[in-house]
Amino acid sequence: MPRVARIPRELRLKPFSGSGAVAAGLLTKRNLTGPSWRRLLPDVYVHACAFDDGDHRMWCEAAALKLPAGGAVSGLSAAFLWGVDLLPRRSPVHITLPRSARPDPHPRLAVAHWALGPEDLTRLFSGIPLTTEVRTAFDLGRSLSRADAVAAVDALLHRRLLRREALTHYVGSHAGLPGVRRVRELLPLVEASSESPMESRLRLLLHDAGLPRPLPQYEIRLSPAATPSSARRDGPYRSGRFLARVDLAYPQWRIAIEYEGDHHRERATFRRDVSRFNVLRAAGWLVLRFTADDVLRQSAQLIRTVRQAIAERT
């Protein structure tokens, strides 16, 4: 029976430095060429059982082992580690390095060169160096497209990882950094109540079209005008009863705007939606429903629909 190789406990779950493991006597150079280990980056390995090509955290842990002093996981990868996943499929790890660092290019690393101050850096409990929440928001605001940047900052605000005041202060105290004007222009557009990137994009479309700013995550309650006079105070039509919370709303015209993701196609969700929309219609609300295709590819028609609805109810 072939002998099963002993796997050091320290190397079972996370990426590690190959030369460091050899120096510590945990493995030999020959061991690292065997099937038990997967090479992720130069001199960085992980046990084959712990390898998952789609695990971005694993790749961040691997990249962290290559970071020089003053370097950090940043941008979309830092946002991911903070709990905001906006990464495209098979995204490289985004890292920021001092200007003097010139690593060899690698397809799983996206490198930016900026000077990070001590106030820009922190570490997770796992030891990964990454940019702080406010620096992460600042970098995303100046590096992503305008719509993606609004969605990213919205998400950080929504998860209470960031306060608008903190980002405003950071922008004001770093006026000399490239891209600061871009981030300053985003500040009036971001919204902590936004619950999804597509909702953020939809709100930005309405703003750019010159339409009034809708209220996000608006709670609709039955108004006295919509309450039958014969209804009991504790009846189903009592004034002030909660009806629904909608993505965006123009309360002055009783127009609700909803983004419909794929989860709305599930049977249980679809049934709840039908009941919900019927309740809103009975209360005098017009509900406009849009999909990703409307937001991304049919935006002109979307704007016409909203503009027409406002005109009809004005």
Rank of each mutant, 00 (worst) to 15 (best):
E260M: 02
V246C: 08
V274K: 07
Y237R: 08
F277K: 01
G235N: 12
D262I: 02
G235E: 14
V246I: 08
R267M: 05
D234A: 09
V279C: 07
L243A: 05
W253F: 09
V246N: 04
H264T: 07
R276Y: 14
L280R: 00
Q252E: 15
F270S: 09
P236D: 08
R254L: 07
S275A: 13
A244I: 08
I255K: 01
L243T: 08
W253Y: 13
I257T: 03
G240H: 05
D273Q: 01
H263D: 11
A268M: 05
A249S: 13
A268K: 03
S275W: 10
R271C: 13
E260V: 01
R241P: 14
L280T: 11
A249I: 06
Y250F: 15
R238Y: 10
R276K: 10
Y250V: 02
V246A: 03
V274A: 14
A268C: 13
R276V: 14
D247Q: 04
F277Q: 09
R276N: 12
A256W: 01
G240T: 02
Y237K: 07
R267G: 06
F242A: 06
D234C: 07
Y259H: 09
R245Q: 13
W253M: 02
Q252F: 11
F277P: 01
T269G: 01
A282I: 08
Y259S: 04
D262K: 00
R254D: 11
T269E: 12
G240C: 08
E258M: 00
Q252V: 10
P236Y: 03
P251S: 07
R233Y: 09
P236W: 05
P251G: 11
R271H: 13
P251H: 02
D273P: 05
R276F: 11
A249N: 06
P251D: 12
E260L: 03
H264L: 10
D234Y: 14
R271V: 15
Y237C: 12
A244Q: 04
Y237L: 14
R271G: 13
A256V: 05
R265T: 12
V246R: 00
R254I: 05
R265W: 14
P236V: 02
I255P: 06
E260C: 01
D234H: 11
R271S: 15
D234V: 01
T269P: 01
A244T: 08
P236Q: 02
R238M: 10
D247F: 10
F270H: 13
H264P: 12
G261H: 04
R281N: 14
V279S: 09
E266A: 10
